[in-house]
Nucleic acid binder design. Sequence first.
DNA 1: TATTATACCCCCCGAATGTGGGATTGTGAA
DNA 2: TTCACAATCCCACATTCGGGGGGTATAATA
Lengths: 208, 208
Amino acid sequence: MISVALIEDLKDIRDPLFEFLSFQPEFLCEIKAESVEDFLEKAKGFLPPDVILLDIGLPGISGLGAIQLLKDRWAEVNIIMLTVFDDTEKIFQALRSGAVGYLVKNTPLIKIRDAVIDSYGGGAPLSPEIARKVVRFFESPQNKIDSPLTEKEKQIVAGMVDGQSFKMIAANLGNTIETIKSHTKNIYRKLYVNSKAEVITKSLRGEI
Amino acid sequence: MISVALIEDLKDIRDPLFEFLSFQPEFLCEIKAESVEDFLEKAKGFLPPDVILLDIGLPGISGLGAIQLLKDRWAEVNIIMLTVFDDTEKIFQALRSGAVGYLVKNTPLIKIRDAVIDSYGGGAPLSPEIARKVVRFFESPQNKIDSPLTEKEKQIVAGMVDGQSFKMIAANLGNTIETIKSHTKNIYRKLYVNSKAEVITKSLRGEI
DNA sequence: TATTATACCCCCCGAATGTGGGATTGTGAA
DNA sequence: TTCACAATCCCACATTCGGGGGGTATAATA
């Protein structure tokens, strides 16, 4: 029997999911909580759970913050994030903190069941799009030998990463601000982005 | 129809697996090769395959070396490694080179079929023990340094790094844009910066 | 030679961001 | 009980950014 706990604030998700999990013959579902605080309270007197399904967008202590907390308490527990967020930062923060799984919230119930079993068996259940992001992380930037950017464009990117405004970049490179903005448009087109923020992120992740 | 190719030197594995895959109604299996060289020869005249199942222990060009080669030729191809090796080095080398999946060789046929579909759909099929190793890679050895930012502020920073506008961050976190702007002012004050760009740079350099 | 591609330069406008004020609520520490 | 401070919202205003144009010059290529 796999002992499973669920922490999820939305009643409409929590209750049906918990009921479904309770129905599984291989699961022992003892704890259902609407927040981390609630969970820690209810967990008193129970044996450590094998698997915890944990929402990220919780009131009070967030799911991401809770990972560390829960791992400190039970080092062996398998934490699976269950969330609507699919942005890279949250995924990596969760994994860094010690989560072993990451499921997006539209995951069918049966897949959630499989994920619990998978994690208990030493796997790492990730939703397909999440898995792809994780795997992409390893892809060596060196593979993309030739940056599509020209020298000028690279200088501008460097300025952006440095936190400079277009005006400052223009001053440094001896151009008008309009010229810099024009180059920026070309940069955005080449990198398939449409904001300074994305250029900086791509650049610092070695994707240029 | 997903066009699938198989490169595997052992006849005893290659032939039954190819037959199985050919039998799947959603697959179009045109190329079966016993080496990378053999594959490149046979691939002439065919459209680029969607998914390539690739052994690592091949005679001649190794599977690991072939990844780069194949990705250079068809940037969009999904390469799934199929191998007896489960050592960390080979896994990461494969992912670095651009493979999207990694299956150990005792994987049941039906799971291989699922993996092909998964990869074609934008996923990253990994055998459970492989997935766990990949996820473990992220686990930070040291406990997080204390950031001056609150949980909420960190969420906003995460949004910024993801390239979101204040409006989008507000929508994701369920706030008004004014709230986000207010928090942003506090973030800037705490980090001694005065632009989104600088926050992203600091964050990605691990200075938060 | 005409065409194409590319790097580089500039202007305008609406949207987003940055900055200066506010305000209220709740929580937790002094 | 103050006090600080996180979190939520609001307004006003100046600046910056993103996307739409328009150009020139040069090199390669058809």
